[in-house]
Nucleic acid binder design. Sequence first.
DNA 1: TTGAAAGCGCTAACAA
DNA 2: TTGTTAGCGCTTTCAA
Lengths: 336, 336
Amino acid sequence: MKQVTIKDIARAAGVSYSTVSRSLSGSSEISESTRTRILQICKQMNYTANAVARSMVMKNTKLLGMIVTDISNPFMSELAYYIDSQARNRGYNILLCNSLRSLEQERVLFELMISRKVDGVILFPAESESFHALETLLPRIPTIFVGENLRDVPESYVTVDNYRGAYMGVEYLYRLGHRRILYFGKRKGSTTHQLRGEGYHAACRDLGLTPRYMNNTFASTSIKHGYQLAQQLFSQPLDVTAVFATTDTNALGLMQAAEEKGIRIPEDLSLLGFDNIRYSGLPRIGLTTIEQPKKLLASMAVDSLLEKIENELTGYTHRVLTPSLVERTTCLKLEK
Amino acid sequence: MKQVTIKDIARAAGVSYSTVSRSLSGSSEISESTRTRILQICKQMNYTANAVARSMVMKNTKLLGMIVTDISNPFMSELAYYIDSQARNRGYNILLCNSLRSLEQERVLFELMISRKVDGVILFPAESESFHALETLLPRIPTIFVGENLRDVPESYVTVDNYRGAYMGVEYLYRLGHRRILYFGKRKGSTTHQLRGEGYHAACRDLGLTPRYMNNTFASTSIKHGYQLAQQLFSQPLDVTAVFATTDTNALGLMQAAEEKGIRIPEDLSLLGFDNIRYSGLPRIGLTTIEQPKKLLASMAVDSLLEKIENELTGYTHRVLTPSLVERTTCLKLEK
DNA sequence: TTGAAAGCGCTAACAA
DNA sequence: TTGTTAGCGCTTTCAA
């Protein structure tokens, strides 16, 4: 598996290795004849440029670090797909890591990215504290936060307008005739979820409804935790007609608990989610939900980051996209 | 963002840079006193080793290329999660790419991996032809194929015993009393699916059943294609009591079509899948299926690959794991 | 125990 | 248009 280098090509072609380099880089002043001749020899000798060596001198790697909390989460993996394709179009590849929602892991990984000299990092923050935990490291490498509102934090991010999304959700349920709407799974430690809660609250206020919460005491909004939380909810009589779940995964957990309790959705209880993960569109599930535009989120993340990298931009940008409602079958219109 | 290098540290410490290098690499002969002194200075000056430069001289990158067909596919993303965690434990990181099931893309990506000097590649083949398409490139970099039987191909792979899994599935349905079992979604161009088909066929033969096929004419076994295929199936009277779908995603598509047609699962029709993707365990879905042990598959893939890399092993290994049945709610026991 | 120096494969400034 | 040379940041002989 001996590596064919530029020198071997130079020797074979009887030229200096800068000539070979020039032929390969396409640009530069060089005669068309030697150029094609050398390219031919490269092909014959099975030469493949060494990207590591090039990185060394070019001072870039054409690599983007992507730190997700968990790639097996459908929201992340869908975003990851779009990010990869967008990045590749622009000549970059993705170095993938999972932080497991641990601030400590996240920090280790971020340092790894610095060490590996990636050109930039796309970060799905482990928590709302991620910014502060990484603050000293951030100036060392262009970074964009994705999917989490960071409020007034001085670093770039792209996210959905969670406040607005929640507000829209309540309005929708209101229009269907619902007046007693529970906000299910409100979770601490995430600005995203805080904003969703605030949007819900504001809509209730504006529409004259009484806000009702069922807080999530668990660390995450997984299906399992939604299920456990819903078991608590269903252990006493229901006094609401609709539930607005803070995430689709939480909603799915609730659905499962409802099934077991014989509570029919939407006949007995309407259910609205948030995120529109792929699961939600599945047959038999058909979860009505507030959608995060994942493809757009991904391409904005890549664009913003590359803008920073390629134009050596300092400062930061905040991009906030408007979510939309995806109507499926879990919300019932109440007859008067 | 000026980069602090080993030279800066050396200058600050008043030693040569080989001394600094030795302090960092941990090993080597060096006095404990200077070692700690230098480490201190590194910390003070915020030094982070340049992994690219190290790769240059060490002739390894501690990077594993991972080429998947589509990371948003739940089977892949789950496997990717385990692979990352396993690789990281062993000091490697993952370079992620999506081939989109295109042989041509796959080849481009494989060459990219060579160029980037990853230490090895984990490949989820685009097709059964992947091996031949990459054959000339394979000797240049340690590679392991994952999730696809390649039969007698002289390259390492780890996969599940698809033949056996399908056989087990038929046996299970037989035990429940089913005698007319349709194999749904048989697809060309993939050894995996061919083997599943053969397992089904063999089981039918051994149990005295008549094999019945509904072939997949589409390129993939997605939910959507399963749905379309099932629409065809349901356009004429059903003469089977159970359907064995070639993948869970296909089964999910069929489920949707059944729902629309008013065909109840499992009351009117039993349904068995293959893969056990996460979707399948969801409430309301509860798909009974043949499970691929994803965590095990992932760790075997990493282990086999690292063995090849670190021991500079030549030759190849084939590892075939036995799948297992996961019983949920889509298969009905027929009363005599 | 430490330092000097070569070299990994490449690009680019400068000369010819 | 081409060749010569320095150097990217690091590890590792070899010598002191």
